[in-house]
Amino acid sequence: MDLIDLSKLPGTTENFEGFIDQLCRRLGVEYGSYASMDPATGTVRGYATYRAEWKEHYTSHRMHHVDPTIHRSILSLAPVDWSRFERNSNFHAVFRSAHDFGISNQGVTVPIRGAFGERGLLSVTARMPPAEWRKLSRQIMVDLQKAAVHLHDAVLRIGGEVPGPLLRPILSSREREVLQWIAAGKSQQDVGDILSISPRTVEVHLRSAREKLGALTTVQAVGRAIGLGLIYPL
């Protein structure tokens, strides 16, 4: 999944919405949105690719106070398909209006929990036959998880709620070792042989290192790790 690398860009609304827009195009969904909630103040910060009229309507009617895609999904560990929400007054308050703006109640929200206990939510929605939606949402779930944590960490960095030094990625010795060998051009199989661990375990360390570095690809991760002095350039 070749996406805009938010770790290199200024944390502007334009960049965040651009990231979500590109994600939607690649995954074949209609709209996407991200919201994070500050646990201390309850402030909701959000970015979305919805049309301006809907965003205005949503904000002016203060729907973020009742929106189940926020208040229910934030309690979930796993991504929540919107079919799981109870069809209560809060649900109808949001989705009856959404319908008038051409937005479907068919969607999924991926909750992300950050290291400081803060939580973020990446949602996507699409109008298509239910069977197609079930198939698509299963296919895109791994990519959605990956995009959600990348976006969440990027938004957190500009939020200012967390002191800068705490956000410096803390790689384990094993993660640095794996990245160092990958930087030297070794395959995951090779790295496994060298370190006497399975290739799947190498993959788990590599994915963790990538996400800690805010990188979407291994190449980006190697570059950032060198830049931060976590591994040596060769």
Binding site: L77, I112, S172, S208, E211
Partner: peptide, 20 residues
């Protein structure tokens, strides 16, 4: 990351959206 951190020998734990 917390009460079982002794298992990690002082190393930071793995952190990934693809790992529970």
């Amino acid at each position: 990351a917390d009460v079982f951190s002794s298992i990690m020998d002082g190393e930071p734990p793995l952190r990934s959206s693809s790992l529970w």
